[in-house]
């Protein structure tokens, strides 16, 4: 007999889930333990690690990846995939900064940038949800289209000369921690709450598990799927705003390769390439874990070549765990 986690937890279940044996089946708990182990090891091996300054920078540096991983988690939950997030980030970065360079007001430029990202997401979502084209194909197309537009718009030039007020968005700090970190944490908490309690996101679990059964159960499969892609792209757009502001420039190559990292983090965090599962806290912890490993690598003077191998290895292991879990489920 297989007991699982219901979408609608009651306190009864919450109590039973705190039993040690069940606790270890929870992906987030495993990730948290891993983070703890790595943190302890790093703080013993290198004094630089446990400084609040270092930890602040680790968290700051992971903010872009986190925003992308959150969006990717929702899309994977819907049994989709979005390969275009990195390119949408690049396009949003270019559009926003070029408008700023031309003297457009800051809110308008940000709005236009986010609008462009939403449009990319809506296009992805429309082709996937309404025209029933495979998400892999659709978003692969968007990946090259968005990057192509970003390239043509800038001819490969860096976009610079941004107003100081804009730079404050990414460079400004509160208690020595950049605003964008607070923003990302608020997104995490709100999204985790909504994923548990908000009906459309609850219905996303059904859609990802069995889209046809979900449709027959009266769930708005197409609309929610569309929404998922729009959200994912807008997370990429938001990351672009922070990145351009923090680095005070726009560049068509921003976000290059970011999609793989986002997928890796979402899958390590508990999402499946086969849809129907996903965890906001899991994805957050996974991004943090990857950032810690990267940070530890630099602090311990690891060779850059080995770093790539290890990151690739982690991705392969995550996908193997996903495949194994699926097989496990199929055998039931």
């Amino acid at each position: 007999m297989r007991r699982s986690i219901s979408l609608f937890d009651s306190s009864r279940r919450l109590r039973s889930s705190l039993a040690p044996a069940r606790l270890l089946q929870n992906r987030s708990v495993i990730l948290a333990l891993l983070i703890l182990v790595i943190s302890i090891a790093l703080s013993i091996l290198t004094p630089a690690f446990l400084s609040s300054r270092n930890l602040t920078f680790v968290i700051t540096g992971m903010t872009y990846d986190l925003l992308l991983a959150l969006g990717m988690t929702i899309v994977l939950l819907l049994w989709g995939i979005d390969l275009s997030v990195g390119s949408v980030l690049g396009l949003t970065a270019v559009v926003t900064t070029m408008l700023l360079q031309d003297g457009v007001s800051i809110p308008l430029a940000i709005g236009a940038g986010l609008g462009v990202s939403a449009l990319c997401g809506a296009t992805n979502g429309f082709f996937v949800a309404y025209l029933k084209i495979a998400p892999f194909i659709v978003t692969l197309g968007m990946m090259s289209v968005a990057r192509g537009i970003a390239t043509v718009l800038t001819s490969g030039y860096f976009v610079s000369g941004l107003p100081d007020a804009y730079k404050a968005i990414g460079q400004g700090r509160l208690f020595n921690v950049p605003y964008m970190v607070y923003f990302a944490l608020v997104v995490v908490v709100i999204l985790a709450f909504l994923l548990r309690n908000w009906r459309p996101l609850r219905e996303a679990f059904y859609i990802g598990t069995n889209p046809e059964a979900a449709r027959l159960a009266g769930i708005r499969v197409a609309l929610i799927t569309l929404g998922g892609y729009v959200f994912c792209s807008m997370m990429a757009g938001t990351a672009a705003i922070f990145m351009t502001s923090r680095l005070s420039m726009g560049f068509f190559q921003f976000g290059l390769g970011a999609e793989l990292k986002a997928i890796a983090a979402a899958v390590i965090g508990g999402a499946s390439l086969r849809g129907g599962t996903g965890s906001i806290f899991g994805a957050t912890l996974a991004v943090f874990l990857l950032a810690l490993i990267n940070n530890g690598f630099v602090l311990l003077q690891g060779s850059p070549n080995a770093q790539n191998v290890i990151m690739g290895g982690i991705l392969v292991i995550a996908i193997m765990i996903d495949a194994y879990r699926r097989r496990d489920l199929a055998e039931d």
Binding site: S6, L7, Y206, T209, N210, A213, G276
Partner: peptide, 13 residues
């Protein structure tokens, strides 16, 4: 199995 139930989910779901 194909169109009615969400097999990997709980009875409650």
């Amino acid at each position: 199995k194909v169109m009615g139930l969400f097999l990997s989910m709980t009875m409650r779901d």
